[in-house]
């Protein structure tokens, strides 16, 4: 049997090797990301998108992405910073409408219905497609009012008793009720970071959306709060469709059914999560999830 020599670990050679690796990856990208690898489409999707392009001014942020999000599934979107995953997520409930320089092209459908149709009301759409952000952002109101806010806005409760019931149910589902049941009228901003994020999730599910978008929902939280929210995501996926953007690959591996890997505005690979983390097919996906230069 033969033993190949160890790779050179001398630092000057290392930077040359590093540059070479980056060159190779760039070359690989130019040549190979014409078509998404894996299975971007599913049967009977909750959300389907086709040929999505997004520009900030003249600068393209997303280049021709087509992707389905399965019903009652968790889809995780991973990729290096600036790869377009958050931009794509924000397209799904028209959050990009609020950015003047942002231009969105392509076909987006929620249960077959065009999200960007002229008559579509973005506020109504966002009640169906809720969003949880990276930093917990409770309103400067009481815990109760935070959760009741959307319910009142959309007139979903007929009376006070019904409102109370929705608030309690939402807090319970978010796994927060037992911790705050005696303090419902204290300010939401007084809670810990993890509790605040669960409050935001309770606020999102209070209006009974169909889809929940999460943009790095645990990146500001400690491991225990993170674990609680990950458990919650898996439970919520029984009733909701969830799309999550995360920088933690372990999180993607733990919570999602499918994983999509974005790279420089393109969708490189989508597949079942188990498959992505054991046998990815595209070299760029492999490099990213194994922590190699990319």
């Amino acid at each position: 049997m033969t033993t190949e020599a160890l790779p050179n670990t001398d630092p000057s050679a290392e930077s040359a090797a590093l540059q070479q690796a980056r060159e190779n990856n760039r070359a690989a990208l130019d040549v190979t990301v014409d078509k998404t690898v894996g299975q971007p489409f599913v049967e009977n999707p909750k959300i389907s998108t086709r040929h999505v392009h997004v520009f900030y001014g003249d600068k393209p942020a997303i280049k021709d992405i087509s992707l389905d999000i399965g019903r009652n599934q968790v889809l995780a979107m991973i990729g290096p910073s600036g790869c377009g995953k958050s931009t794509f997520l924000r397209c799904l409930n028209r959050m990009n409408d609020t950015i003047p320089t942002c231009r969105v092209e392509g076909d987006f459908r929620l249960d077959g219905e065009d999200i960007y149709a002229p008559g579509q009301d973005p506020v109504l759409l966002r009640s169906r497609v809720g969003m949880v952000f990276q930093k917990p952002n409770p309103f400067p109101k009481s815990i109760y009012d935070n959760v009741a806010y959307g319910v009142r806005l959309h007139g979903l409760a007929k009376n006070r008793a019904e409102l109370d019931e929705i608030v309690e149910k939402s807090l319970r589902r978010a796994g927060l009720f037992d911790e705050v049941k005696d303090d419902l009228h204290k300010p939401g901003t007084g809670l810990s970071g993890g509790q605040q994020q669960r409050l935001c999730i309770a606020r999102t599910i209070a209006i009974d959306p169909e889809v929940i978008l999460m943009d790095e929902p645990t990146s500001a939280l400690d491991p225990i709060a993170t674990a609680l929210i990950e458990e919650l995501m898996i439970e919520l996926s029984e009733n909701y469709t969830i799309a999550i953007v995360t920088h933690s690959m372990q999180q993607a591996a733990r919570v999602s059914n499918r994983t999509a890997y974005f790279h420089m505005g393109k969708l490189v690979e989508v597949n079942d999560t188990d498959r992505i983390f054991t046998t990815p097919q595209h070299p760029l996906t492999e490099n990213y999830i194994t922590g190699r230069f990319g």
Binding site: T9, E14, A21, G291
Partner: peptide
């Protein structure tokens, strides 16, 4: 086996 961002990781696997 190489080319990890962490050189130590490269070394450990090697």
């Amino acid at each position: 086996l190489g080319q990890h961002i962490s050189q130590r990781y490269n070394q450990e696997l090697e």
